[in-house]
C-alpha cells in the first residue's frame, strides 16, 4: 500500500462526501466565498491604485517657476547652472506659452484661458533629482529657492505621498478585514467538520474498532475542509472578477473626471493563486482544529 494510494483514497472519500450533499456543500462554499470576496476585492482595487501611484511617483520632480520679468539671458544662465548640477538627473524647460496651451487643454479651463488678455503663467524648469533621498531633495529645493530668477518652487510629490499614505491605510484595513474573515472561514469549516464527526460517530467508532489509525479517520475530514475551502475560493474568485467588471467602468469614469487615467485590471494569476491557496489552507486548518477537538483516540463502546 503506497502513501499516495492512501492519500488518493482519503481524497476520494472526501470528494464523495462533498458530492453526496450538494446543497449543504454549496451553502458552505457560498459562506466562505462571501468571507473571502470582500478582502480580495478590496485588495485588488487597492493594488490598482498603488500601481497608479507608482506610475505617477516614478520620478519625483521639482518645478522652478521663473519670475515674469526674467530676461532670456537670466533664463539661459539658470539653465546652464541647472545642467551643470550633478544632483539633477533630467531637466525640462516649459515655456510660458506652452504652459498656457497645456492649461487650456485641461477640461474646464479652455473658457477661462480664452478670457485672458495676457499670459499670466511664467516660464518654468522641471527637474528630476538624481536621488530620491528626502534630504538631497530638500537641499536642492533650498539652493534654488534662493536663486534671484526664481519666483516660486514647488515639490510635485506631495499629493503622491498622501496617496501612498492612503493606500497604506487601505492595505492595513484590508489585512485586518482579511484576518477577521479568515477566522470566520476557519470557524465555518470547524463547525462543518464538528457536525460531520457527530453524524458519523458510529462509523468512526466501527472503523477504530476494525483497526483504523487516527490518521486514517482524520485524513478524509482534512481533505474535506481543504476542498470546501478551495470551492469557496473558486466562488470568491468568480465573485471578485464579476464585481470588478461591474465597478471598473464606473471607477475609471470617475477618475477621468479628475484627469487621471485609471485602468483597473485583475485579479491576476498570482493573486488568484494566493486566494485559492489561502482558502484551501484555511479550510484545512479549520478541519484540523475540529478533528483535534472532537475526534477521540479509541473506539467508543
Amino acid at each position: 500500500m503506497s502513501a499516495l494510494y492512501v492519500q488518493r483514497m482519503a481524497l476520494g472519500q472526501a470528494s464523495r462526501r462533498l458530492a453526496g450533499k450538494p446543497l449543504s456543500t454549496l451553502l458552505s462554499a457560498i459562506v466562505i466565498a462571501i468571507a473571502l470576496t470582500l478582502p480580495a476585492l478590496g485588495y485588488v482595487l487597492i493594488d490598482n491604485l498603488a500601481g497608479l501611484a507608482r506610475g505617477v511617483s516614478g520620478q519625483p520632480e521639482i518645478s522652478l517657476f521663473l519670475k515674469l520679468d526674467a530676461t532670456p539671458e537670466q533664463t539661459r544662465a539658470l539653465e546652464a547652472q541647472l545642467r551643470a548640477d550633478s544632483r539633477i538627473a533630467a531637466l525640462r524647460f516649459v515655456p510660458r506659452d506652452a504652459a498656457l496651451k497645456q492649461l487650456a487643454q485641461r477640461g474646464g479651463f479652455a473658457e477661462v484661458t480664452g478670457l485672458l488678455t495676457d499670459n499670466p503663467l511664467p516660464d518654468a524648469f522641471v527637474i528630476e533629482p538624481r536621488s530620491e533621498n528626502p534630504e538631497a531633495f530638500e537641499a536642492l529645493r533650498r539652493d534654488y529657492a534662493a536663486a534671484p530668477q526664481i519666483a516660486h518652487l514647488q515639490l510635485d510629490s506631495g499629493w503622491v505621498e498622501r496617496l501612498h499614505a492612503l493606500i497604506d491605510l487601505g492595505r492595513s484595513a484590508m489585512l485586518l478585514l482579511g484576518g477577521i474573515f479568515a477566522a470566520a472561514l476557519v470557524i465555518v469549516t470547524f463547525n462543518t467538520i464538528r457536525l460531520q464527526i457527530l453524524t458519523q460517530r458510529h462509523e468512526i467508532a466501527v472503523l477504530l474498532l476494525l483497526g483504523a489509525t487516527r490518521d486514517f479517520v482524520r485524513r478524509p475530514f482534512l481533505y474535506f475542509g481543504a476542498l470546501q475551502g478551495l470551492l469557496g475560493g473558486l466562488l470568491a474568485w468568480g465573485s471578485v472578477a464579476a464585481l470588478l467588471r461591474l465597478v471598473a467602468p464606473r471607477l475609471e469614469g470617475l477618475a477621468q473626471r479628475y484627469s487621471i487615467v485609471l485602468d483597473i485590471g485583475g485579479p491576476h494569476l498570482p493573486e488568484v493563486l494566493v486566494l485559492l491557496v489561502t482558502a484551501t489552507v484555511l479550510g484545512w486548518l479549520g478541519a484540523a482544529l475540529s478533528v483535534r477537538r472532537h475526534l477521540h483516540d479509541g473506539p467508543a463502546d
Binding site: L209, L210, G211, T213, G298
Partner: peptide, 15 residues
C-alpha cells in the same frame, strides 16, 4: 496508542 490499531487488525471482532 499508535500501535493499538495494528493489534486490532490482527484480531477479528464480532460484537
Amino acid at each position: 496508542a499508535t500501535q493499538l490499531p495494528y493489534l486490532r487488525r490482527s484480531l477479528g471482532l464480532v460484537m
